[in-house]
Structure formats: C-alpha cells, structure tokens
Design a protein around this nucleic acid. Structure first.
Lengths: 188, 188
DNA sequence: TTGACAGGTGAACACTTGTTCACCTATAAT
DNA sequence: ATTATAGGTGAACAAGTGTTCACCTGTCAA
C-alpha cells in the first residue's frame, strides 16, 4: 500500500517536475484530510524517501532520478536486505561538471576503437583552452574536426588515433584543442 | 543583469531541488515587492527559461539539468545563435527505462574489450527473465557472474566473450540470465 | 474486556501563495 | 515639452500552505 503511495508521488514529480503539496497529495491518494497526508509524509521522511525544507515543504531525496549501484559485475545482485544499503547515483551529477561548457557529441568512424570509443557512441565533452597532453580531445586541425589523443613531441602538439589503421595527425597550419572528452556513453 | 537573475534562480534550484516561490525570489534578488518578481518571471516564461503550473507555481524548463547536444564530432561547436536551437538531453531519462529494475555495475576484466567495454567501465543493466540472444547480458554460470554476449546453438544457450583470448562459456549446470546491458558509461 | 495504538477525519491556526490594482519614477522617443 | 514605456513599490485579495488539536474508529495484545 505504502509502495503505491510512493509511486503516485514519484509520478507526480516526474510529470510536474516538482513535489506535490500536502493538499495535492491528499487528492492524489484520495485522502479526506491533509492531516492524514501530514502523518504519512512524516513517515516517508523517516524512511528518507522524501525530505522537508526549512519551510516544511516536501523536497525530493536522492532516490528521485537515481539508480542503485553495485560494486562489481562479479558480485551479482544484492538481496532485498542489502539493497537498502547499496549506493545510488545520478548520471547528470556524475557526468557533468560545468554545465555551461558541457556538450554531447556523436562519434563517427572507428579511429578511437582501441580506446573503447566506437562509431555511434556519445561523448561528453567540456570546452577548454588548455592543451591536456595524453587526454582524448576534440580538436580542429586545419578546419577539420576530430576526436583523438593529444600528444606532444618537443614543442609541437599532434593527434594520435587509437587504431593501428590510422596515422597520427600533424597540423599543417593550425591545431586547436576545442574540448576534452570527459566521458563516453553508449546505449544499446 | 537578467543573466545574473537566472543564475541565482538556477542555483536555488540546484541547492533546494525545487523552484523558489515569488517571495523567495524577491529575497534572492533583493527586490522590495513580489510584484517586481511577478513581472520578471513572466518575462522568463516568455523566454522559456521557466514555466508555470496550472496553479501559477514556477516550474523548471528543460534547461535545468540538461546538456546541449550536437550532431557529430565533425560538425564542431555551434555558434551562439545556433546554440539556442540545439537539442538538449538528460542522461537519467536517456539511460534509464525502468528505474526499479535498473542497476549500475562496474566491469572487471577485458573479456568484452572488442565490444568497447573496458575494465572499470560502468554498465547500466536492467533485470530480466528473458533470454535475449545476441545481446550483452549479465549472467550467472554455475554460480559465477560475468558479462558476455548471449548466444544460442540449437537448444542450448552459451556465453561468448568479445576478446579472442577468451573461450566461449557453456554452463555445466546452470546458466541464468540476470540482466541485459542497456548502456555503457565510462568517465575519464 | 480492557488498553494501547496506528491511521484516519475535520476544523482551526497563522502565514505564504500567485495575482491584481493603483501609483511612482527614470529613460527614451516624439 | 509631452508622451509613452520599462521596471519598480506597496497594499490588498482569495486561496492554499504546513501544522496542530481534539476526536473517531478498527486491530491487536495483554
């Protein structure tokens, strides 16, 4: 029963992008008094399902938009008892540092395949003015955009693919590092 | 100036996990009347920076918690003018279908390296009772947990790594498919 | 049979909510 | 010099806010 309540609150949050008020929960769960809701919410707060403001308003807890995290594949899935203890994570927070400077790009070609970046993968990149040698970067070389490792020999920077079939790239005119690759996301 | 306002509202949302009320914005922006806020908010609604409920409450628009998406790496970054038009995405929504059945696991070993899944990568998996042949699954074979391709020959299922150095795995006693791999996430 | 208690109702509290109105500047255009 | 306009103040409105209180069940244990 209480799980049902949680689900209804959760889907309200999903739909309206905010937590419901006590009155709204009352209608949502077909209660007759807001006080019934008040008592219910206090229990949900104890359970850490939701939280409260300094003004008493209900605020979402971590569970909203988060996913349970397990150590290793080899460890298998936790029992329901262990599940309570398992960590949760949120991809947006995990993957995105500086929101303003972050972009998502889709990868074409297999020049980075040995680094585990395949055609069609999405890369999370963050714009930069630095030259982070050794990292995977988005660079524009003589007007062309690519994703490669940034290397340095002596005073000159160059780009190195992660695929034996491709050659390293030296800029004829200009090599500009536009962004650093922060993460790779592939969906099946 | 108005950018400054947006930032303050945004960081309120980040901190409190909900949108501020008119009165709260008033204090936030050091206004003397809520009506000044009211007029400001209406402009922000026109700009599509925020939205309004049926009850008049302010709700976050897509921008909150989302990231700009670019077509291909080769396309480069958009100009500020184009940026307005570019799509945005939200990782949680993108990666997670059924929240209850979804887990994150960390990969150990290089048996799936040719599929672009490296040691230390995080996989997003969804529990299942089906046998999705051809997909990458989390399976328990005779008590051991692994991540492999699920294959079928005749009536028997078996597991195939994506690495020539490893052998295919046939279960001596039992092969159980615990979950399907929905996505791979790697952070640098 | 009694008492405790979890879970619900319904009314009341002070306060905050979004919204509207009349009014007050400055700044810019005519 | 006059008029419009964008952006602010301050008071008022009904409605909704979280919270508290007294009260009413049914269920279960002693």
């Amino acid at each position: 029963m209480i799980e049902n309540y949680k689900n209804k609150i959760l889907s309200f949050y999903k739909k309206n992008r905010r937590m419901p008020s006590y009155g709204e929960i009352m209608k949502l769960l077909s209660f007759q008094s807001r006080n019934a809701v008040y008592k219910l919410v206090n229990k949900l707060v104890d359970e850490d399902f939701v939280g409260k403001d300094s003004t008493g308003r209900i605020i979402p807890k971590k569970i909203f938009g988060e996913v349970k995290m397990i150590g290793l594949v080899q460890a298998g899935f936790p029992s329901p008892a262990e599940e309570e203890l398992s960590d949760t994570m949120n991809f947006d927070e995990y993957l995105i540092g500086n929101k303003e400077a972050t972009y998502i790009m889709r990868v074409k070609g297999d020049s980075m395949i040995d680094a585990g970046i395949c055609e069609g993968d999405m890369v999370v990149v963050e714009r930069t003015n630095t030259f982070p040698v050794g990292k995977i970067v988005i660079a524009s070389v003589d007007g062309e955009w690519t994703i490669k490792y940034l290397r340095k020999r002596g005073d000159t920077y160059y780009l190195e693919p992660a695929n034996k079939d491709y050659d390293t790239i030296y800029a004829e005119n200009e090599l500009k590092v536009e962004a650093v690759v922060k993460a790779v996301v592939r969906k099946y």
